[in-house]
Design a protein around this nucleic acid. Structure first.
Lengths: 232, 232
DNA sequence: ATTTTTATTTGCGCCAGCGCAAAGACAACC
DNA sequence: GGTTGTCTTTGCGCTGGCGCAAATAAAAAT
């Protein structure tokens, strides 16, 4: 598949770039394909490239010295990742990017984008806007982790995922998600056992239906109640 | 106290601004003094101003619907806060800013800085750099909260505080901090009881000395070991 | 100096959530 | 279609850390 400037305009940060800029960006980037489970980059690597995901799905995660990891964010096509290095030169990636399925990304030299930002205030501005959402989201999740119980955090994570990537069924408010218990655990700072127990419980109550790496939300409203801590 | 452009140049985001820009910024800002315990702004307020702290100390925190709160960051003189609203217009503050002591801030219209950023790539760039550090720091703290035990988080918080604002004694590696147990609890996502028990324990072991709203680090190296999870 | 307010400590009980282990379910592959 | 690997469930025991309450200590106010 060939990537055109039209595709590139779908990237939020490039939405206000001119056709000429987009062409220049394309010329300064290379396509990189990665198999499921492989990595675009590791936490601590020198941040030579930033990426635009063109197909597939990528997990951004951070590990502590013992190897325990948390999921920071999942990347979908036409989203940018690994961009922090473009701002601070000589930077290293603060997270690891692993492909959840066979994925293709457009790799742009960090130093190239760095230069581009200096001369294109509008692109810099759009990148800044993106950063503010990241900051706010991380702050909110931090607070959630510090103050909310596991139930609430898991319910919240499901709702957030549903809003981002859920596939809505025509009929009612049924939303389908493809995530393992382990994934959800890493997103919410708990263990797969606890997530499994919670989901089983909710399934018994008819709030969701579950399967192997599948969660179907039947009654979102009940999840909202749980996430608000109204339950119990 | 009158604020000069020379003062303003101490602000990281304005370090590369020209004298003319600084004058313009000064002209578009007003001084606002706040007593200890009072608020510069509340989470959810319309983000009309962003601030430069010129004296005192300010706590940025976030509350959940039940009123439980977490400390996101402490602001010291010549640091900027409330700036996220300058990027996205029509934004509300994502956090609450409370003065820990009598404090004075320079209030700059968000819309003014917004316009300034559009025409001054260098300032935008420096603000972006600041944002990347925030993102990285929040990600690191999020991971810490998700994967580390309370001991480690508290030890880490003390070390971080010591590096930022600790007063070093001439002699050995003694570092003094002025924080209550409650403060530390809110910084680490735990309770003041747990913090108190931990600090008492460490005092018994001679790692720190404590007092009312005072913590003196005697043997930082032992704290590092605890924060790395080597203890036990 | 006395009173009031605010911060801290500590004992005690408790439970949410962890961690292991073993079994079961599902998908994929040969 | 049987085998293998991965994901999930569930029982069981345990404990880190929470939360209350009451005592103590330190600072601030009068």
């Amino acid at each position: 598949m060939n990537i055109t400037t039209k595709d590139l305009a779908k990237v939020v940060v490039f939405q206000n770039a001119t056709e000429g800029d987009l062409k220049l960006i394309l010329k300064n980037s290379i396509v990189r394909s990665i198999e499921e489970g492989e990595f675009f980059f590791f936490q601590g690597d020198f941040a030579q490239y930033l990426y635009i995901l063109t197909s597939g799905q990528v997990k951004l995660m951070q590990s502590n010295p013992n190897g325990q990891q948390v999921n920071l964010r999942t990347i979908y096509p036409w989203q940018m990742f690994g961009a922090l290095g473009a701002v601070r030169s000589e930077a290293t990636y603060p997270a690891t990017a692993q492909a959840l399925e066979n994925s293709t990304g457009l790799a742009i030299e960090s130093s190239f984008l760095h230069k581009l930002l200096e001369t294109h205030p509008q692109i810099a501005f759009d990148l800044m806007t993106l950063m503010t959402t990241y900051i706010q989201e991380m702050q909110a999740r931090y607070r959630e982790l510090a103050t909310e119980r596991v139930e609430q955090r898991v319910a919240n994570a499901l709702l957030r995922l549903a809003a981002q990537v859920g596939i809505r069924s025509e009929k009612e408010a049924i939303i389908e998600l493809s995530f393992s218990r382990q994934d959800v655990a890493e997103m919410t700072g708990t263990t797969l056992f606890t997530v499994s127990r919670l989901l089983s419980d909710w399934e018994r109550k008819g709030i969701i239906k579950t399967g192997r790496e599948r969660i179907k939300i039947i009654r979102p409203h009940d999840l909202v109640r749980i996430s608000d801590g109204m339950e119990k």
